[in-house]
Write a protein that binds this DNA or RNA. Structure first.
Lengths: 345, 345
DNA sequence: CCTAGGTGGGAATGCGCTTTCCAAGGTAGT
DNA sequence: ACTACCTTGGAAAGCGCATTCCCACCTAGG
C-alpha cells in the first residue's frame, strides 16, 4: 500500500502541476533552477504538491529537453585494479555535489571494448568522457576519430595518465619520478640493478623504464637485465622467476630489482622468496604507484607515490569547469622503505 | 575538418532517414531490433546512410520513447576498497554485452549520500539498482521507502552482501564461513584466540564475529578478547596495538588473532611487527575476504575466500533476467596459509 | 475475376520535460 | 489619464526517438 499514490506509474511534472493548480511551465520553473522565479506563494504550492506526490524528475526527459545529460563517463582498464579504483574514487570526488552521475566502464585493455565504451557514452550524451590508463597508441585511429567527433559535438574529454594530442587532462611525470627513484637508490649505494619492464607497448611502462634506466646510465651504471613481461602481479612473478633461473639474482650479491608497477613488485617478492633468496639482502625490490597495502608488506616496499586519488579528483573537476580542459602534469616522489635497504646498512 | 559532416550538431535519425530516402519509422526499424524487418534492400540503404553520416542513436531519446534506459545503478561504500571494486568488476561482467551501462556511486557509508544516490538513480530511470555492502539497518527508513517506490514503478533491486526483506540479491554466508575458519584453526591446534571485531553495527562484521566465536564456544574455547574498532586497515592497526599494550599478545605464547576483514589483518600484522612480536610464532593472524595481495604477504595470510567477483557477476546477471530477483546465498571457504602455522609445526 | 488476408512503408502521436513566445496585468513616467 | 515598459503565468512548440495506426499494394483462394 503506497502511502502516497497508486503504483506502477511514475508521477510526472504535469501531475504535480495539476495538483498545484498551475501550468507545467510554472511547475518546471520552480522545481529546478530556472532563470525565472515564480512568486513565492505559487512556488510553495508547487513544492508541496511535488512533495506530496513524491515527484522525481525524469532525468532522461530533462536531458532531452536541455540537451545535456548530467552524466560523465569514465573508462578504465580494470576497476578491480587499485590503480584505477583509486582514480575512480578521485573522479567521483571531483565531480562534486552537482548531481552529475558517473558512468563507469572497464574495458580489460581491449581496444574493441574501449571503442564500444566511447560509443556507448556518446549515445548516452555524457557531458564528458574521462579515459584513464595508457593504451597502445596504435590501432586507436578509430578511437581517436570517435573522440574527435565527440568533441566536435561539444563533449569534453580528459585523459588521465596518458597524454593525447587533441585533449587535455592530467598526466603523470612517469619518467621524472622514475629517475628520482633511481637517484635515491644510487645514493643508497645500490649499483647492481635489474629492471622488470612490464609491457613496453604501454606508454606508462615505457616512460618509467626509460626514466629509471636513463638516470642509471647518467651515473654510469648499466642494469644487468631489462626484461619485459605482463604489467601485472603474475607478470612480475614469472619474470622475476626467470631472472633467478638465469642466475641474475642470487644469494650473497644484492641486486636491486625495479618493477614498473607495484603489483609486479609483489609478484617479484613472492617469486624471489619461493626460491630461497632473502629480502632485501639478496634481492632489493622497488615498485611504482604506492598502492595501499604496500606499507604493510614485510619488508615494507619502496616505491614511487603517485597521488592517484588526487589525479582523479583533478580530472573530475576539470571537466566540470567551463572552457577547454587544461593540461596538468603531476609528479610522484620516491618513498624509501625497507625493501631497498642496502646490505650492511 | 570533419571527414563526414559539419560539426556542432549531432546527426539524428531523421537525417539518416532523409539521406536514405525513407521515413524515420523505417530507419528506426532497421537501426535497432524491431519486430518488423524492412526489406533487405531498403535496410541496406539505411545502414549505409547511417554509417556515412556517423549516426549515433540518442540514448536519452530512446529511453524516453521506450520507457527503459539501458542503465543499471551500483551503489558501494567505497570504490577504492578492493572488496567493492572486485564486486563492481563482477557486476559489469554480469551485465554482459547487452549494451547496458553501469552508473556508479560511492557513498562513503553515509546514509544521506546513499539516499541521494538512490534518488539520482531513480531520476535517471535506471532499470535496476544494486546495493553492495551492509549498512546500519537503522535510520534507513527513508532508503527503504525510496526503494519500495522504485520497485513499485517497475525497478529491480538487488542487494549484494546484505539481505533486505523486500528485495532479492546475493548474500554471503558470513557466519558459516567464519565458523568453518574457526573449525580449521582449532584443528590446527590453536586454542588461544583474540578477535578484532570491527564495527559491530555492521551486519557483516557482526555475523562474522558471531560465527567465529560461536564455533569456538562449541569447542569449549573462549577468546581472550573481542575488541571493536574501525572496520579498516587503521582500525586493525590500532586495535591490535591496544591488544599488545594490554598484554594480551606477547612473545612466547602464540595467540591467534581473527580479524573481521583482510585489511584489518594487514594493519594488525604491521602493528604486531612494530612491537617486536614474531609472525606467526607469537601472533598468528587470520583475515576474511581474500583480497588479491594477501597471498604475497610474508608470511602469506590465512583468510576466508569470498568469490567477490562471482558475487557481483551473479547480481549483475540477476537483474538482467525477467521476473523478480532471486535470493542466493554463496559461501566462502577457509584458505589456510603461513600466518596461522601453529608453533612447533 | 473478385475478394479476404497479408505485407511493408509512412504519417502521426506521444514519451516527460524545457523554453520560447504570447498575453494580461501592473508600474512608472509624462 | 494615457502610453511604454516590465513582470508573470500559460500555451505551445519542440528535444530525438519508438510505435500505433493507416493505407497501398500484392498474393492466394474461390
Amino acid at each position: 500500500m503506497a502511502a502516497t499514490e497508486g503504483n506502477g506509474v511514475a508521477v510526472r511534472l504535469a501531475d504535480v502541476a495539476r495538483e498545484a493548480g498551475v501550468s507545467p511551465a510554472t511547475a518546471s520553473r520552480v522545481l529546478n533552477g530556472s532563470s525565472r522565479k515564480p512568486a513565492e506563494e505559487i512556488a510553495d504550492r508547487v513544492r508541496v504538491a511535488a512533495q506530496r506526490l513524491g515527484y522525481f524528475p525524469n532525468a532522461q526527459a530533462q536531458a532531452l529537453a536541455r540537451n545535456t545529460a548530467g552524466l560523465v563517463g569514465l573508462i578504465v582498464h580494470d576497476i578491480a585494479d587499485p590503480y584505477f579504483s583509486s582514480i575512480a574514487r578521485g573522479v567521483q570526488q571531483g565531480l562534486g555535489e552537482n548531481g552529475v552521475q558517473l558512468l563507469l566502464n572497464s574495458t580489460g585493455r581491449d581496444p574493441q571494448r574501449e571503442l564500444a565504451a566511447v560509443r556507448a557514452f556518446m549515445s548516452h550524451r555524457t557531458d564528458a568522457i574521462l579515459l584513464a590508463g595508457s593504451r597502445s597508441q596504435q590501432e586507436d585511429h578509430e578511437l581517436m576519430e570517435a573522440l574527435r567527433r565527440y568533441q566536435d559535438n561539444g563533449g569534453r574529454v580528459a585523459m588521465i595518465g596518458q597524454p593525447l594530442p587533441a585533449a587535455g587532462g592530467v598526466q603523470l611525470d612517469n619518467a621524472g619520478a622514475a629517475a628520482a627513484l633511481a637517484d635515491e637508490l644510487l645514493k643508497l649505494g645500490h649499483r647492481r640493478f635489474a629492471v622488470l619492464a612490464g609491457d613496453q607497448s604501454l606508454a606508462t611502462a615505457r616512460d618509467r623504464v626509460e626514466g629509471f634506466v636513463g638516470k642509471l646510465r647518467d651515473a654510469g651504471v648499466e642494469p644487468v637485465a631489462v626484461r619485459e613481461g605482463a604489467f601485472t602481479r603474475d607478470g612480475g612473478y614469472h619474470t622475476a622467476g626467470d631472472l633467478v633461473r638465469d642466475g641474475l639474482l642470487e644469494a650473497g650479491r644484492q641486486t636491486c630489482v625495479f618493477c614498473a608497477n607495484d603489483v609486479m613488485a609483489l609478484g617479484t617478492m613472492t617469486a624471489v622468496r619461493e626460491r630461497g633468496l632473502r629480502l632485501p639482502d639478496d634481492v632489493a625490490v622497488a615498485g611504482f604507484d604506492d598502492i595501499p597495502t604496500l606499507g604493510d608488506m614485510f619488508p615494507s616496499v619502496t616505491t614511487v607515490r603517485i597521488p592517484l586519488e588526487e589525479i582523479g579528483r583533478m580530472a573530475g573537476e576539470m571537466v566540470m569547469e567551463d572552457g577547454d580542459a587544461r593540461r596538468l602534469v603531476v609528479s610522484g616522489h620516491p618513498v624509501l622503505r625497507e625493501s631497498t635497504r642496502p646490505v650492511g646498512a
